[in-house]
Design a protein around this nucleic acid. Structure first.
Lengths: 245, 245
DNA sequence: CGCCCGTTTGATTTCATTCAACGCGTGTGG
DNA sequence: CCACACGCGTTGAATGAAATCAAACGGGCG
């Protein structure tokens, strides 16, 4: 298998951490807000580059949260395993995303590498110190968090849908959006995660996901190149399916 | 009806905005982190007290986000109305909560008063200026946002459950928790929202919600004083119901 | 007193889950 | 080099739970 996109495929990215998030108050502004080179390098001096193999754990819920991770390449899933044997994925994360949210010094969820992953490991101790006297960086953090909160609410919206077909449609649109934001090619959508992962994210059984994808494929709304690469043939129809109910 | 708890029932609260959120990195610390009196008064000078009648709109999605609101008393629901006629509630907010999240200068959802509401209206312009040279305040904002993000993820977890009974159970536990955090009496749970609101929050039909509540009541897990006041009789059983599946 | 909104209850339909079997591709060991 | 096994995905049939449609109820407010 070739998941060597753990290293960035392309990138007008310098060395050091990079984070993208829209502004919250400024109406316009760059589509993807980024850290200034200064901030990036300031973060760089306190962070280290870490690699995780496919299936590797970045951290587990309840662990002491001594670092956050800024992804350089690869895909990460964050999940919770509530009592009762259930398994729920709270989010998928890609290049320039940040994972490692904490509350009271402990991670609130677990994170696992879906593909090989490269990430900057930023120790919280140093980060906290840095934040204390860098209001601009702090402000960027607020923007990023606001954005994540919005994403979480969209995820909730997706989960509230009745029909699985609708959920799958929304999920694909989200992935497409995500790829577009990251400036990648949107001709084809890349699904690094398994059907089972998708199911755990959208709140349905993996069979239902499989059926939905196959149905969309049969209706020629989608076309699969292989199990992890889809092309959206009929955007309008997908839009309608995602919106209905 | 008497919804005069738009003004705080009790309160070791001074004048001026007040916000509670747990810390993110410090393991211990006060259960409910609050603004220092200094920060509160700094916010006070730029904010004004606003009142909204039951059913009143605080803001609508897409409006220019020129203020955020720090609730003093009453209950607010934040909702989205995605294309397709659906209606989804993303959260309920109570005293000391903050509503008015924005992206790119616009509100990302709408907010409506469920009861009469009193809130500090904090203009974004002034807030932004204040944040720029108050790193501590900014840090508190980060804590608050992290906490909200965690809540949103819990909401998503709730929505992912299969059985409506389980969702209702989790919802009641969340409300109980929320009340406890706010230091209110947890003997009885107060449900200011309608069944329809609960349904829109947990992702089910209002009939299903009604049936579930009645079922729990019949099994003597709950006891209703009236439609908006429940007592949890059997915590263990509720816990089990919320956890199953 | 009577209207109206929110709620409850009932009957029917629809859809996803569940259980089960099979196909496919990859990697391994004989 | 081939056979096999394993993980993952697809397909099928039966069950079950919630949505939907529909109607009656209750309490609050004019």
């Amino acid at each position: 298998m070739s998941d060597q996109n753990a290293d960035r495929p392309v990138g007008s990215r310098g060395v050091g951490p990079n984070i993208v998030a829209p502004g919250i108050w400024e109406p316009l502004g760059a589509p993807g807000r980024v850290l200034t080179p200064q901030e990036s390098s300031r973060l760089a001096v306190i962070s280290s580059l870490a690699r995780f193999p496919k299936g590797g754990l970045l951290y587990s819920r309840g662990d002491r949260a001594d670092a956050i991770f800024n992804l350089v390449g690869g895909t990460v899933k964050a999940f919770k395993t509530p009592p009762g044997g259930a398994y729920h994925i709270v989010g998928f994360f890609f290049a320039d995303d940040v994972v490692g949210l904490a509350a009271n010094g402990k991670y609130v969820n677990s994170a696992e590498a879906i593909t090989n992953v490269t990430a900057y490991r930023i120790p919280t101790m140093a980060l906290e110190a840095l934040l204390r006297n860098d209001p601009l960086l702090e402000f960027n953090a607020i923007c990023k968090l606001s954005h994540e909160l919005d994403e979480a609410q969209r995820h909730a919206l997706l989960l509230s849908r009745g029909r699985v077909l609708s959920k799958v449609g929304l999920f694909l649109q989200m992935l497409e959006n995500s790829q577009a934001t990251r400036g990648e090619n949107t001709e084809e959508i890349y699904l690094p995660m398994t059907r089972s992962d998708i199911a755990a994210y959208i709140g349905a059984s993996l069979e239902a996901v499989s059926r939905s994808l196959r149905a969309l494929s049969a209706q020629e709304v989608l076309a699969f190149r292989d199990r992890h690469h889809v092309k959206i043939l009929d955007h309008a129809r997908l839009e309608a399916i995602a919106a209905e109910y």
